[in-house]
Every structure is written in structure tokens, then in C-alpha cells.
């Protein structure tokens, strides 16, 4: 037995050492999560407007066009449970917070990050935000949560080619969005609407509870809560499932009427947004983000 264990340890040791080295290298790479977490840790007390949500708000709301110190804490695929977790994490430091803007999208009430194909992103919240969104060992490691193939590419890109992974501005706005719309925006809208149509409605109560918790928090602290549905391209809007969208819109209205500090703004079919404002069926580009942010600022006055 001793001989077997000795051989096993000798065989496994190099794998663990190399694995550990890769993990360290990966964690050293600057990324959006790290940058936003660092900003929030040191500047939370100066933030007056906090933007929460998914890629829709990450790319669609540019804090630079909002008055006062605004910060965008949205990430791709972020769901309401994570929005609430971020808010809870920094609630004691957000002493100057006056407004929270949070997206309410077509799929927001029906998806939870841990249940989607994007669940690997949980490790970023665990590692850099220390949110403990998932207690599995895998989601506390860069190496184990993503394919080695991708991780080696990340190491090569950063350490050899010097390519940066960060794609946000100082205020947290996502600059990764393409400037021009794709050739077939019509089809892109249809495709993404179909992808966002969720047949399983089991996450509805979980998500609405998180929204309600945020709304209650804002009410208690007298913080203005702006729940916003961002513009979608017309093909995206027309291919939405009516029931799913109705439930979403009704919930937005419910929040507006139930919580005194809450306002629901629905820009979904706002005709002032044209094809030139989108980079795909449901995401605004830089021009669209500017347009929306300026509008928001007007409404927030």
C-alpha cells in the first residue's frame, strides 16, 4: 500500500504543481470583475448612482452621461440574485447612494445564473467579489471552472501577446459592444428572442423575491430605485413570448406601485432608438447607450 501511495503522490505532484501555477497566473490577469470589485471596495462611499444588471445595462447605460458619481456594476448574464448579493455586500459602504438603476429584461425573471450555461461566471463573483454565490470547489477556481484550452489561451494572450482582458471604462460601462449593427439585425433579433424565451417558469418567484428585496432595501434607505426595461430591436420585441413578457411588464408595474421609492421605466418599444443604435437584437451600441443614458438623466431630474 505504501508503495502504491508513494507512486501516486509522485505521479500527481507535478500535476498539482502545474495546476497551482496556472491558477496563480490566471488570477493575476486583470479582468472586469477584479476592476469593478476593487473600485467598489475603495470608492463605494462616493457612489451616488449604482447600475445593476446584465449585459443589457452593462452596454446600454453609460454612467458618464449621468450626473454625480455613477458606477455600472452590471456584468454579462448577471441575474437578480447576484444584483442583490452585490448590493448586500457593499451596503454599508454605499453611504452616499441616492439612486439604483436596475434592468428588468425579458428573461430577467426566468433565469438564474447558476442554472444557465454561463454558470462558470459564478467563480468570478466568488473569487473577486467574495460573494459566495456557489459553494462548490470548482466555482472557487479559475482553472477548474473553465476549459484548460480557454485558460491556456488566456495566459498566452495576456502574458505573451500582452492583450488586456478588461473591457470596461473607469465607471464600469462595457466598451466591448460593436459599434455598427450586424448585417442581418432583423434575424439577430429573432434568434435572441427565441433564445431568451424560457419554457421553464420555475425561477420566477426566486427572481421576483430578489427584486422585491432590492426594492424594500431602497425604500428603507430612501434610495430612488429605477427599474428599467431597455430598448430592444423591433424583431426582438415582436418575437417575444407574450405571456413571458406580460409577466415581466406586470411585475415592473407592480414594483412601481408597491414601493414608494420605485419607478418603472419601459423603453422596450421606444421608437427613438433605430437600427443604428443596436449592435445586436437586444443590446445597444455606444451611440444607443449615450442616447438612453441622456434620456435617463433627463427623467431622473
Amino acid at each position: 500500500m505504501k508503495q502504491f501511495l508513494k507512486l501516486l503522490v509522485i505521479f500527481i505532484a507535478p500535476i498539482l504543481i502545474i495546476g497551482g501555477a496556472i491558477e496563480v497566473l490566471l488570477r493575476q490577469i486583470p479582468n472586469d470583475y477584479k476592476q469593478k470589485a476593487a473600485y467598489l471596495s475603495s470608492n463605494a462611499n462616493t457612489i451616488e448612482t449604482l447600475i445593476l444588471g446584465s449585459s443589457h445595462s452593462l452596454y446600454g447605460i453609460n454612467p458618464d452621461y449621468l450626473k454625480g458619481n455613477a458606477f455600472n456594476a452590471s456584468f454579462v448574464s448577471q441575474t437578480p440574485d447576484v444584483d442583490w448579493a452585490i448590493l448586500q455586500q457593499y451596503q454599508n459602504q454605499l453611504t452616499n447612494l441616492k439612486t439604483i438603476i436596475i434592468r428588468l429584461s425579458y428573461a430577467s425573471l426566468f433565469e438564474t445564473l447558476s442554472e444557465t450555461n454561463e454558470a462558470w461566471r459564478l467563480k468570478d463573483y466568488n473569487l473577486y467579489f467574495h460573494l459566495q454565490q456557489d459553494y462548490t470547489f470548482k466555482q472557487h477556481s479559475e482553472l477548474l471552472s473553465v476549459k484548460l484550452q480557454n485558460n491556456l489561451n488566456r495566459i498566452y494572450n495576456y502574458y505573451v501577446l500582452g492583450v488586456s482582458e478588461t473591457s470596461i471604462t473607469q465607471s464600469g460601462w462595457g466598451i466591448n459592444a460593436h459599434v455598427t449593427p450586424p448585417e442581418n439585425l432583423e434575424q439577430a433579433g429573432i434568434n435572441v428572442a427565441q433564445r431568451h424565451t424560457i419554457s421553464d417558469l420555475s425561477q420566477y418567484h426566486f427572481n421576483t423575491d430578489n427584486f422585491k428585496a432590492i426594492a424594500a432595501f431602497c425604500e428603507t434607505r430612501n434610495i430612488q430605485l429605477v427599474v428599467i426595461t431597455l430598448p430592444g430591436y423591433k424583431s426582438y420585441n415582436s418575437y417575444m413570448d407574450k405571456t413571458q413578457w406580460q409577466k415581466t411588464e406586470d411585475f415592473g408595474k407592480f414594483l412601481d406601485s408597491t414601493y414608494t421609492t420605485c419607478t418603472y421605466l419601459n423603453f422596450l418599444n421606444d421608437e427613438s432608438f433605430t437600427a443604428q443604435d443596436f449592435f445586436d437584437g437586444d443590446h445597444l451600441n455606444a451611440q444607443g447607450a449615450k442616447k438612453l443614458s441622456v434620456k435617463l438623466q433627463e427623467l431622473l431630474k
Binding site: N117, W120, V146, K147, L148, Q149, L152
Partner: peptide, 8 residues
């Protein structure tokens, strides 16, 4: 190879 392709 196993780790290289390991994901979900």
C-alpha cells in the same frame, strides 16, 4: 488531454 477538454 482530459484537462484540456474538461469543462462542464
Amino acid at each position: 488531454f482530459i484537462f484540456y477538454f474538461y469543462a462542464k
